[in-house]
């Protein structure tokens, strides 16, 4: 589904990603962990096409297409989704209007007619229930005045609406209390299917108790320095990153 080959990226002449290789197959869940500043969020930004970062080398192939040729909106329409670490507040744009526009743009891309108003409202109701989001939130402006937990739940709600093939959860657990964390994780798990893959970017093992990964990768100084099964996350929780840093420096 996703193949990243020797990916290098920089921001303002500072190289952040320095040769990332990663392959994700349909249905898999990959966790990416690593200390602060190792390039985790840069990776998610580069995958979704944020033009603040410049890709200097390497390829990303998503569903047989070269991602570098696609705009952020086309990446989304091809089935990529990023749950933002810091979702943006957009006063004046209602959640309903935003989601309806997004869904219809996706449908247009696939050559399908726009969704009828009643079908759309039905879909909203279903998905709200699925992610246990307060129905009032969708009547408000996008993320405006939402608490940290509400914003993250809202990301998962959007994910449920758009049914992406590949979801990237960028520190979705940061700032969440244990109940919100469970709701968010439940939402992700309910959307799990053999065709859909997930990348979970996190600092902590905690989220991985709920969303169990198939693989855990450690990112350090812009490279994946270690990959293993879910037991690696437990080891990191226990020992911290220092031993990996040390190994890498040596």
């Amino acid at each position: 589904m996703l193949t990243i080959k020797n990916l290098h990226a920089k921001i303002d002449d500072k190289e952040i990603l320095r040769g990332i290789n990663l392959t994700i197959k349909p249905g898999e869940i990959h966790a990416i962990m690593g200390p602060n500043g190792s390039g985790k969020s840069t990776l998610s930004a580069v995958l979704t096409g944020n033009d603040k970062f410049e890709v200097t080398e390497g390829d990303i192939i998503f569903n047989g297409k070269n991602l570098m040729d696609l705009s952020p909106e086309d990446r989304s329409r091809e089935g990529m989704f990023l749950s933002f670490q810091y979702p943006v507040e957009i006063p004046g744009v209602s959640m309903t209007n935003f989601m309806r526009t997004a869904i219809n743009e996706h449908r247009k891309y696939k050559g399908e007619p726009p969704m009828s108003a009643s079908d759309f409202l039905k879909l909203m109701r279903e998905k709200k229930k699925l992610v246990e989001i307060d129905s009032n939130l969708t009547n408000r402006s996008v993320n405006e005045g939402f608490s940290g937990g509400e914003k993250k739940k809202n990301e998962i709600f959007q994910m449920a609406m758009l049914e992406p093939k590949l979801s990237i959860l960028d520190e979705t657990d940061s700032g969440l209390d244990i109940d919100a964390l469970r709701i968010v994780a439940n939402g992700v798990n309910k959307l799990k299917s053999p065709e859909r893959s997930t990348i979970v970017i996190t600092h902590y093992q905690r989220l991985l108790d709920y969303i169990v990964p198939d693989y855990v990768h450690v990112l350090y100084k812009g490279r994946i320095v270690r990959s293993a099964g879910k037991e690696l996350a437990l080891e990191l929780e226990e020992k911290g990153y220092d031993w990996i840093k040390k190994e890498f420096e040596d």
């Binding site: 952020p72 957009i90 004046g92 935003f98 526009t101 997004a102 743009e105």
Partner: peptide, 29 residues
């Protein structure tokens, strides 16, 4: 707001559509 523009585009809205939505949002108050 470039961040808002990117946020909307990352959900599949075209650049033009996202711009119009943000301009409209600016005036709604």
């Amino acid at each position: 707001d470039e961040n808002a523009l990117f946020y909307l585009r990352s959900r599949g809205l075209s650049k033009e559509e996202a711009r119009i939505l943000l301009m409209y949002a600016f005036t709604y108050e």
